[in-house]
Design a protein around this nucleic acid. Structure first.
Lengths: 219, 219
DNA sequence: CGCTAATCTAGAACAAGTTTCAGACTTGAT
DNA sequence: ATCAAGTCTGAAACTTGTTCTAGATTAGCG
């Protein structure tokens, strides 16, 4: 029968490729495959931390992670897939870190803003990495939808955590969506040098008001 | 002396190139140059209307607009510059069109939402073109900042128009910024098939509430 | 007109993402 | 232990954005 479990399937007609994503089960990976996957993600993050999006060159990632180019493409069917997966990976870390010290704010809006600013400060420490991940995320086309969705869910979870809201109302979920939109877009304007850190802060605080606007349901 | 006026200057050390933008004066173009520029933008929009971002191939744009590849790059120093310029062009049309029939809503929030939904419907008619323009816009790096900023200003103008607000307060300007963020990001999620049209509508309406939240200054 | 600097053209060349292929290697089942 | 199916490797090829070059053209000035 098969050897190492199938990692992904490729389509051959259109232009792009279908993908298989991150940790979420699907085809269980062998130990060596898991190790390869880790090496690749590590190399990706490392290269990104230097020169950002452009510095993540597939040939270099392959070399750094001691894997053939073809193998790299079997694990991640495009550079965008790779960087989005890298982002998933980093987001998990981040969520874990954020969980440890919950925000102090009085209102939900304050807590969410505080959490996002904390995340933002983390990104500031690795601006090139942030650049690579965010650019990939917004440049992703339909073929990467599942992975991008996963990132979105993770982000939503972080925000809901900060709200401390067990059963958010539909209205609140809308507010959270808008907050995510603002978060991504504000990051982009910052990364491309069109907005200052202070401006990002203001934008985040502004949008977070929407949370208080959508009154919490009486407990 | 010079022949046709200089179109743009290039830097040669770093990676990217410096750009010169759209209509805004700077180096006055001769008639033939203006014609070339128009042909290029037209070809760009036409190719984009077919297959979106990927279909805008520089060689094809050059051929379609009957201009040498080198000349194309003299006018638009990168594919991103070209598509952002295309967006500026389309936005001007759009603003003109929108101006003609001002929105009917009672509140400023309603009018802004109505205007954005009208713009959104226009984009739906050319989803591929929208894809190319929006992807370029969010993928643009620092070298395109001036052009992207110009697009942003144009968008802001459209929103302020819809608000019918002569002297917006700083708070309202913040709200407008957040609305723009949401607008861009919502467009992206729609274009990449991760959100429905209905969802975009909800997001826009949700964020527009921020306008009413930031009370207008007593006249 | 004739000059000169700048622009335009055609085409080759280069860079990085992606695909392809033949052969060596692993894996799990028999 | 053997084998069939699936993986990995190394290298070449292909695609498309970008750069470079040599020569033909054009614009404005004296």
């Amino acid at each position: 029968m098969p050897a190492e479990a199938k990692v992904s399937a490729k389509v051959n007609k259109p232009a792009k490729v279908e993908a298989r994503a991150a940790a979420p089960v699907s085809p269980p990976l062998t130990e060596r495959q898991e190790a390869r996957r880790r090496r690749i993600l590590h190399a990706s993050a490392q290269l990104a931390s230097r020169g950002g999006f452009d510095a993540v060159q597939m040939r270099e990632v392959a070399e750094s992670s001691r894997v053939a180019l073809g193998t790299l493409y079997r694990y991640f069917p495009s550079k965008i897939h790779l960087l989005v997966a890298t982002m998933q990976d980093q987001l998990e870390h981040m969520h874990g870190t954020l969980r440890k010290k919950p925000p102090q704010g009085e209102t939900a809006a304050e807590r969410v803003a505080e959490t996002l600013m904390r995340a933002f400060r983390a990104l500031q420490r690795e601006p090139h990495l942030a650049d690579a991940m965010v650019r990939a995320l917004t440049f992703a086309d339909r073929s990467v939808s599942p992975e991008v969705d996963q990132v979105s869910r993770q982000t939503t979870a972080i925000i809901l955590d900060a709200m401390g809201q067990e059963n958010p109302t539909p209205e609140q979920l809308s507010a959270v969506r808008v907050i995510e939109h603002t978060w991504h877009s504000a990051l982009i304007t910052w990364l491309s040098g069109r907005a200052s850190i202070a401006q990002v802060k203001i934008d985040i605080e502004t949008v977070c008001r929407l949370i208080d606007l959508t009154a919490p349901p009486a407990p």
